[in-house]
Nucleic acid binder design. Structure first.
Lengths: 193, 193
DNA sequence: AAAAGTGATTGATCTATGTTAAGAAAAAAA
DNA sequence: TTTTTTTCTTAACATAGATCAATCACTTTT
C-alpha cells in the first residue's frame, strides 16, 4: 500500500526505514467513488493527499457560478488546498474524484509533528511546493500566450490518456473555454489531418 | 542596510543574533538603475533577491514576441526565477528595474549552505514559496473569472500607488490586455463617476 | 525653443470565443 | 432492448478585447 508513496518520496530525499515507518504510520487510507468529494469548497482542508490510483479534479466556482478546473491529479500526484491548509481558512477549491480513487491522507497536525521530528520532510515539502508552483506558472504562461487550440494540443501531449479518462467538458473547464469551443477546436483539428 | 530583510524574516521564523549574522554575511548588495536588468531570459538565475527599495518587473516574451508581466516586486518583496534557480536551467523570465532599485542577493550555493547549517531557513523559504504560490493561484483565479475591468480595479485596490509608479502599458501587460484596451477601460471607469 | 522620443488616447474594423438553443450520440439505468 | 440521462456537436448571433493607424500630450535631448 505504501510502495508508491515511498518511491515518490525517495525521488527527492533519502530516508531510513525507521523514518519512513514513522511517516507512514500517520497516513490514512481513503477510498472515493467516482463523483465523491475529497474536499468541499468552504470546508477547512486539514490534510495533504497522495493519489494511489484514480483521478481527481481541483476546481472552483467563479462569480458567475462557472466551474474552473485548476488541475487534474492522477496517480502518483499530491493533492490538497494549500491555501486552506496553510492559513486555516475555509477552502477556496473543491476536490472531486473523476474515477474511483484511492488516496493516502496526511493530517495537518501530524505533518507539523513530522516537520519537527524529521526535518528532511521540511525539505521534501519545500521542493514539492516549489515544483508545483513552477508547473503552475508554466501552465499559466502557456495559457496567456497560446491560443485555446495550442493549449489543447499541449495538454494532449502532456497527458496522452486524458481524452479517454476525463470528459470533454471537464477538459474545457481546465482550458478555460466552453465545451462548445472545445468541440469546434477538435473539429478544426480533425479537418487538418 | 539589513533592517528591512531582518524584519521580513522575523515575521515567519525567530533567529538568534548569531544566526542572522551568519545569514546576512552571505548577502550581496546591488544597485540597479531604472531599466537595468537583474536577470535576462536565458541566463541562469543563481540567486534569490530581496527588494530593499524601488520596483522590478518579472516578465517573459510569448511566442508572438509579446511581453507578459508575471508580477511587480516592490520594496520588502522577494524576487527571482524559481524555475531556473531550482532546476539550473536557463531562466524563462527576465527581471528589470522599473525605478532605481536596491536589492540584496543570496547566491544559490550559499543558500544551500544555509539550509544545511540553519534548518530554520528551510522552513522560511518553504513558507515563502507556499505563500507566493497561493498568491499566484489567487491572481490567476481572478484573472480567469473576472473581466479586465474588474481585474484593473482589483489591482488598484491592492496597490493604490501603482498608477503613480508604473507606466500604464506595463500595467496592461500585467493584466494580459493591450494598452489600448486599458485606456478604454479607464475612460469607461471615469465616465461612471 | 525646436526636435525627437515616449506614452496615452481614440476610432474603425476584425476575430476568437461566448451565448443560446437545438439535436445527435453515447453511456447508464431500467 | 428500451428508456433516461449525460455528453458532445452544430448553427446563428453577440461581445470583449485585439489590431491597425492616426493623433495628442508629455518629457528629454539638442
Amino acid at each position: 500500500m505504501f510502495d508508491q508513496i515511498k518511491a515518490n518520496i525517495d525521488k527527492k530525499i533519502s530516508l531510513t526505514e525507521e523514518e519512513f515507518q514513522r511517516f507512514s504510520s500517520f497516513l490514512k487510507f481513503k477510498k472515493l467513488r467516482k463523483k465523491q468529494h475529497l474536499l468541499f469548497e468552504g470546508d477547512k482542508c486539514e490534510f495533504t493527499g497522495f493519489v494511489n490510483s484514480g483521478c481527481l479534479r481541483t476546481y472552483f466556482l467563479d462569480s458567475h457560478a462557472k466551474e474552473h478546473i485548476i488541475n487534474f491529479s492522477f496517480e502518483d500526484w499530491w493533492v490538497g488546498d494549500l491555501y486552506s491548509l496553510l492559513t486555516g481558512n475555509p477552502a477556496i477549491y473543491a476536490i472531486e474524484a473523476l474515477e474511483d480513487t484511492e488516496v493516502l491522507l496526511m493530517g495537518k497536525d501530524d505533518l507539523e509533528t513530522i516537520y519537527d521530528t524529521i526535518p528532511k520532510f521540511e525539505r521534501f515539502f519545500r521542493i514539492l511546493t516549489q515544483n508545483a508552483y513552477i508547473a503552475f506558472q508554466r501552465r499559466v504562461m502557456d495559457n496567456f500566450s497560446q491560443t485555446a487550440e495550442e493549449n489543447y494540443q499541449a495538454l494532449l501531449k502532456k497527458f496522452p490518456f486524458i481524452a479517454q479518462r476525463v470528459p470533454q467538458y471537464q477538459i474545457a473547464a481546465y482550458l478555460g473555454i466552453t465545451p462548445e469551443s472545445l468541440s469546434r477546436i477538435r473539429k478544426d483539428l480533425a479537418h487538418k489531418h
